[in-house]
């Protein structure tokens, strides 16, 4: 198992894949892991330590451990992977069945004071339909016990670009407007920790860009922002760090490019354009680092055993074959391929 994860990706907790250990164990056995909690996880503003959550026989989250620091972290996974369960546990709205969820070192839940530090935008499209967007933000500000709720509500409405619709009832809002109203409520008390469950759902591309911009700016101010999505492109564009959940387990965590490089048991594919594709292909096939070469549409599609050994030999092959390299690029660096790899394993 560890050979697959040769080394720890930068920024990822060393034991970021706590679910691994539990996998060999049958479902009936205890799901907690005896492994010690890594120090950097426990010290993170948001720490999830050997957390499991099950509903009867259904395991929603299975022995997950990670820590999240400042910046934007994307929580990625298909529907039903346990993202919302995890979000609710982080927000203290759902106790874990096992393990611990720590927010700034204190257990989440049962402590209303914590909500001065956390802003949550839930996935569910629930709303007080009879309130206007402005009234909703104002109510949230007042319930957050802010000294100047009017100013805070105004600021939040402006941040999410909802001014035009702020005086209409939420009941008449489009999905995108509802999302922004929820975000305004989550932001209204300027929390250092933001938990956003599927925040871009229903937003049009322009709003999406605006919101990504906003989140990037807020992250730059040192906030901890965790957002979930099942859309890879969103995560790829916004998050420096990703957590990938599959079927309740944490499948990967860290920088996704770093993750990709760690997956050495799957061939990497590269696209090569050269002055003489056939000669280059002949030379490449002779190399141990190359598993297969295909001529596709005026380019070479190369499957390499692993990233580093291929990139070391490719220049030498070209020189020996007398071929000029026009283009060399990895074709599966996208988060999509990382994700497909993790899900299909």
């Amino acid at each position: 198992m560890n050979s697959r994860w040769a080394g720890t990706p930068p920024g990822a907790p060393p034991d970021g894949r706590g679910g691994r250990g539990a996998r060999a164990v049958t479902g009936r056995q205890p799901l907690w892991s005896p492994a010690p909690v890594p120090a950097d996880v426990a010290a993170s503003p948001l720490a999830v330590v050997h957390v499991g959550r099950w509903y009867g026989n259904v395991v929603a989250v299975n022995d997950v451990t990670f820590g999240i620091g400042p910046g934007v972290t994307g929580l990625l996974g298909p529907n039903g992977a346990g993202k919302s369960t995890l979000m609710h546990m982080l927000a203290g709205l759902l106790p874990p069945s096992s393990g611990q969820v720590l927010v700034e070192g204190r257990p989440a839940g049962r402590d209303p004071a914590l909500y001065r530090r956390i802003g949550l935008s839930p996935e569910r499209d629930a709303a007080y339909e009879f309130l206007t967007g402005r009234e909703f933000a104002l109510l949230s500000a007042r319930l957050a016990r802010l000294p100047d709720p009017d100013a805070a509500a105004r600021r939040a409405i402006a941040l999410v670009d909802l001014e035009a619709a702020a005086d209409r009832q939420i009941g008449g809002y489009s999905k995108g407007m509802r999302q922004r109203a929820k975000l305004a409520a989550a932001l209204v008390h300027d929390p250092p920790i933001l938990l956003l469950d599927e925040p871009f759902n229903g937003m049009d591309p322009r709003q999406r860009l605006h919101m990504m911009d906003l989140l990037r700016r807020m992250a730059a101010e040192g906030r901890v922002i965790l957002f979930s999505s099942h859309i890879l492109e969103e995560v790829e564009r916004l998050a420096q760090q990703v957590l990938v959940m599959v079927a309740g387990r944490l499948a990967a965590s860290g920088d996704y490019r770093a993750l990709r490089h760690l997956m050495t048991d799957r061939p990497h594919t590269f696209l090569l354009r050269t002055s003489d594709d056939r000669a280059m292909a002949a030379g490449l096939v002779a190399e141990d680092a190359v598993l297969g070469v295909q001529l596709v549409d005026g380019a070479l599609d190369v499957r390499a055993a692993d990233y580093s050994s291929f990139t070391r030999v490719v220049a030498g092959v070209a020189r020996r074959a007398g071929v000029t390299l026009y283009e060399l690029r990895p074709t599966d660096e996208s988060l999509e391929s990382v994700f497909a790899y993790l899900v299909n394993r």
Binding site: G292, Q294, V296, D297, D301
Partner: peptide
């Protein structure tokens, strides 16, 4: 793209898709 994948006979394929 992957040469090891056995191709079902009824597949429609071009060079790019």
């Amino acid at each position: 793209m992957n040469p090891e994948v056995s191709t079902p006979p009824a597949d429609v394929r071009t060079s790019s898709g």
